[in-house]
Design a protein around this nucleic acid. Sequence first.
DNA 1: TTAATTTATCTTGATATCAAGATAAATATT
DNA 2: AATATTTATCTTGATATCAAGATAAATTAA
Lengths: 158, 158
Amino acid sequence: MDNIIAQWRAERPDLNLDGMATIGRVKRCAALLQPKLEKVFKEYDLNFWEFDVLATLRRSGGDCCLSPTELFSTMMITSGTMTHRMKQLESRELVERLPNPQDARSMLVKLTDEGFAKVDAAVTAHTINEQQILAKLPPEKLAALDEALVDLLAALEA
Amino acid sequence: MDNIIAQWRAERPDLNLDGMATIGRVKRCAALLQPKLEKVFKEYDLNFWEFDVLATLRRSGGDCCLSPTELFSTMMITSGTMTHRMKQLESRELVERLPNPQDARSMLVKLTDEGFAKVDAAVTAHTINEQQILAKLPPEKLAALDEALVDLLAALEA
DNA sequence: TTAATTTATCTTGATATCAAGATAAATATT
DNA sequence: AATATTTATCTTGATATCAAGATAAATTAA
C-alpha cells in the first residue's frame, strides 16, 4: 500500500492521497483476511458462501427456519443468487426446504441435522481462527482497532 | 454487526466472539466502501477493475508500459483474468498492446492518450471522493483509524 | 367479487473470476 | 547443437454473481 501511494505521489503530487491510503488499507486487510478464513471453512468442506448461509440460519436460533427472502435480504445478495445457493446446499443435504403453511408463495429453509452439526463445528473453529489471527496484535492495539472500526462503520452506514 | 454478534452470543455462549466482531467490521467496511467508490468510476464510464488496471499503468510512470505478467502479479489476479481485461480495454482503445522487442513471448501494455486522460481525470475525482467519505470522521479519529489499520495490515502480511 | 397491485421466488442471459492445461519463446543443461 | 526446463501468455470449462424479467400467490381497491 505504501508503495502504491509513493508511486502516485511521484506521478500526481497535486492529489491528496490520505484517504486513498486509509481506504486502501481497509480493502487490503479485507482481501488478506479472506483466504485465512476460507482455510478453516475448507476443513469442513465448506466455502465462504456456504458457511455464510448455514451460519445465518444457525444463529437465527429457534428451529433455524428462515425464508429465502429473509436470507438474501440480510445477506446483501440478490434473490437469484440465493436460489442458486439453496439448490446446492439442498443437494448436499445441509438444508431442506419446507412449504410455508402461512404463505404458499414462500418456503422455509431449515438446517438438516447434518447441516446443523457441520456449521456448529465450523463456527467453533472459525472463532478460534479469528482469535488467532488477531492475537498477533497486543490487546491495547486490538482495542484501538476495534474502536476505530466502530467509528468508521458508523460513518459509512450513515 | 452488533446484531450478528448478539445472535451468536445467544445461541453459542461458549464462543469467544471478539475476533468475529472486529473482523466482521473490517469486511463490512470494505463492502460498504465498494459502491461508494464505484459511483465515481461510473461517472467516467469505468468499473472498478477497469480503473484498477488503468491506474496501475498510470502510476507506474514512465511511458506507462507494463507487461501483462507484471500487471496480474501486482494486482493479485490470475493470468486468464488479465487476458480478459486486456481484450476489453483494448477494444475500448484505452490501452494498446505493443510487441516487446526484448522478449517475443511477452507484450507491453500501454495507456493510449485517451486512456491516460481518462484515468487521470478519474483518479482526481476518486481521491476527492475518498477524502469526502472519510471527512465524516474528525481528524483525530481518522488518525487513530489509519494507525490501527497499519498495525493490522502488518500483522496480516507477516 | 373481480381486477389491480404487491410480494416471494425462480429463470434467463450476461459478466467476472479462477484453476488447469495449452502454446510458444527463452534459457539452461548435456 | 539438441534437449529439457522455465517463463509469459492465452484458452477452456466451471462457478458465482447480478439485473431484469417471468410466474404465481397474497393483498388491496373498486
